[in-house]
């Protein structure tokens, strides 16, 4: 996918022409277009230095496209992969600490999850700083976004003597949680399985 257009127009535009071909009107809102599309969009969010980009790399193989969206972001990387037989698009966003952005760069990630049609948000946190990073998790839960929490860098945390109880955390938050050491590819399969669960359970497909 080669997208150097501005994000407000490029994705929906492409969808609309697609629909027109099949005799549908193009009046649908951006949001509807997305929920009815056969592809799942998943955004990776989290503070800087938690290994989002590395995880993005692992999930998508490589950086397929680095689009620069004029007026909105420094860079949002976009990459496609197939999970559970469905096309999944991953978005790697600039770091953000909280839902309230402070720099322009941070507002990119927020605008993306607030206004764009993202089917699933994966919040990546550093196991060493779990407590303070859960702040954003709680905000994302409050926002009722479909959410999955990745507790990354458990290897580094374990070296510091910190152990995270994945099940207990999932129970407390009421969302799926995966502990990982992305740099060592530990937990990657588990994450992909959880994403696959999500992709299969949501009725997204539209028959052409």
């Amino acid at each position: 996918m080669d997208c150097h257009d501005c994000h407000q127009s490029c994705q929906p535009k492409r969808k609309n022409t697609g629909w027109k071909l099949f005799g549908f009107g193009s009046k649908r809102s951006v949001k509807n277009n997305f929920t009815h599309s056969s592809q799942t969009t998943i955004a990776l969010v989290g503070s800087p230095n938690v290994g989002k980009s590395l995880l993005f790399n692992l999930l998508t193989g490589t950086y397929v496209t680095v689009s620069n969206y004029p007026g909105t972001t420094v860079e949002v990387s976009k990459g496609n992969t197939v999970i559970a037989g469905k096309k999944v698009t991953f978005l790697d966003t600039p770091g953000m600490y909280s839902l309230i952005p402070i720099t322009e760069e941070e507002s990119v990630a927020r605008d993306l999850i607030m206004n764009e049609a993202v089917n699933l948000v994966i919040h990546v946190v550093d196991a060493k700083h779990l407590g303070r990073m859960l702040n954003l998790t709680l905000q994302l839960i409050e926002a009722q976004l479909p959410l999955l929490l990745v507790v990354n860098m458990i290897d580094e945390a374990q070296k510091l003597g910190i152990w995270v109880d994945e099940n207990q955390l999932a129970y407390q938050l009421g969302i799926p949680v995966v502990t990982m050491a992305a740099a060592q590819k530990v937990g990657l399969k588990k994450l992909i399985a959880k994403v696959a669960d999500y992709v299969q359970s949501t009725p997204l497909s539209v028959t052409y």
């Binding site: 503070s47 600490y97 909280s98 309230i100 402070i102 700083h129 407590g131 303070r132 702040n135």
Partner: peptide
Amino acid sequence: EQIVKKLLAMG
């Protein structure tokens, strides 16, 4: 207030 927000966000 922005500074307070940022400090809070950094823990």
